[in-house]
Design a protein around this nucleic acid. Structure first.
Lengths: 181, 181, 181, 181
DNA sequence: CATGAATGAGTCTTCATTCAT
DNA sequence: GATGAATGAAGACTCATTCAT
């Protein structure tokens, strides 16, 4: 199931899982390698043998999360039908399972806590949206793409921060707005 | 100019300014009280005399920033004309001076790094938007308000993170979209 | 009522009372001048204006307590009848009021925490006991005096530490042992 | 020789020895973890790795000392002959080697400085004394035991505090008093 | 591969004390 | 006499990291 199963030892995976969990819930700086080791059931030294230092661990996790998020976006970025692209994009924040929630949470946390180490970008989805809006003959496809992206991040953010709106109704409202239902 | 001029000593203000600056640029956990004291030109102990502990300092800053942001939003929330409300809201992220940039930056940083200590809310502006959309006879004023809020936060976020779009063009595009120009 | 009423200001007295209370309950090192000032309702600086430093404050309190304890022992040391001397000595730990308990507590606390600064001695009562045992024609008046002193300190200590024996019965037992009832 | 040789590393033992020495001579609050580390030839952090915090270190030492004191009392508490029990009890404070002096000193110091953390009790010896006095057909074995305990603590205290009596003579006097020589 | 003892620099915080007002 | 702002040194404790085993 895990991404790390290839040439990783069990303990290496355990460390990554623990760090992912803790970085996500507490943030990077508030999570000590000691805590990670305890949580992973592993000696602290092992973290450094495998990932060289704390930053290395962070990078490994960011890479993983980046892959997972991109995989999550696959159904959008590999879609040809422009309407479906839009529908899937606007549905995305309302259908998150717990693992996806974690990934996005980490994405936002690190974006603000470690602005320099942020290789997780939304470039691919942006291009997909531009293409879709172009096909749909919108006048300003790039601005439209930007707008949807901003909406997407805004909604994701408010959902992750626990704003308790009626999400389903808002989802419907959005699809309506873009004439998709 | 500063909010703190009332009962505060010069050094107290210096501490708040230093902490604001450093929390904003590096984040809460990455900023040590030692760094703050050095930056403020003050003994470290003084921080604790005045703010009890690091968290107390953070709370003081959050409170200040909250006030400043609300003041920043005043021109929107005190506006009666619904069209002007919308215009001002959609213009807001594109006309930030450096102090406002700092305030919003802190807002986002702490929102993700200290999720529990986040009294800065957008409730007031939401209500204002709902009222505006109601006056303008939109069918779903609350959803519309939510949408604008999400757009607002999305744009603010991407501007603060340094995404280098053509901001002016995007601003115009948005106003057009809502039929405001 | 207080010993300090002569040429002391109200606040000076407040400080001494606070320090006595806190030194007694928490010990010397565990009591900060900050705590004392707060407890006394006084500025911290005032402690140093009146007592020069923390040690000076301790000395003032030790002196006071020494006087109070000696006053407490007066009824013994000024007694002529040797039997009454013994009776009063053996009764002493069983009839303490709250202020006397505090004084003895401080006596023991400081005796072990600040062994060098301990001018509160039991010399006078020892001499009184020797005189009494001499009058009563005991063979080894000095050893007898020592023994009673040890018993006295032992009982005081166990009472202050909260050993919950039947104190009355033990008191009677002791008086009996010395043929005093 | 030391109690700690089992699962403990050399440095762990060194820390305990240093802390024992310093707590005994200066008291708990007057001894900083920095001082302990220096004295033990060890990094300060190591204290916390092994004992969690300063209180944990104190508890470890109290436990050790408790064991040592109980061992010291073994010759009394495991004695059957009631006369020998009394003799050994009354001799105890007059035959202390330097290590025993240290243990008792710590016992008294912490009893007054950390009243809550005091698991070193004299319960066992009290029971032994009650049994002895019962066998010797004293009327009030429990009170007699209490009395001897008070005497014992009184003498220990005055010896540790450096009262310079003729200890041998006093020892003889006591044994005589109880008809043991 | 894995552990856990060990470290030194750093973190937050408290302390006794000073001093201008 | 009295305050309260201010300090520098020291306090307990945590951190990322190293290394022998």
């Amino acid at each position: 199931m895990s991404v790390h199963s290839l040439n990783m030892t069990l303990k290496q995976t355990k460390i990554l899982e623990a760090a992912l969990e803790l970085f996500t819930s507490e943030g990077y700086h508030a999570t000590s390698t000691y805590k990670i080791a305890k949580y992973a059931g592993v000696s602290e030294g092992l973290i450094f043998r495998h990932f060289h230092n704390k930053e290395g661990l962070a990078k490994a996790i960011i890479k993983d999360t980046s892959i997972k998020i991109n995989k999550h976006l696959d159904s959008i970025t590999k879609e040809d039908d422009p309407k479906l692209v839009l529908i899937e994009t606007l549905n995305l924040p309302f259908n998150l399972n717990s693992s996806e929630i974690q990934n996005w949470n980490l994405f936002f946390k690190l974006k603000w806590e470690l602005p320099d180490n942020n290789p997780i970008t939304m470039e691919l989805i942006k291009k997909t949206l531009i293409k879709a809006f172009t096909k749909l003959r919108y006048k300003h496809p790039e601005h439209e793409a930007n707008l949807v992206l901003n909406i997407l991040e805004g909604i994701l953010s408010s959902i992750l921060q626990g704003q308790d709106e009626d999400q389903n109704a808002f989802n419907t409202f959005l699809l309506n707005k873009y004439g998709l239902i």
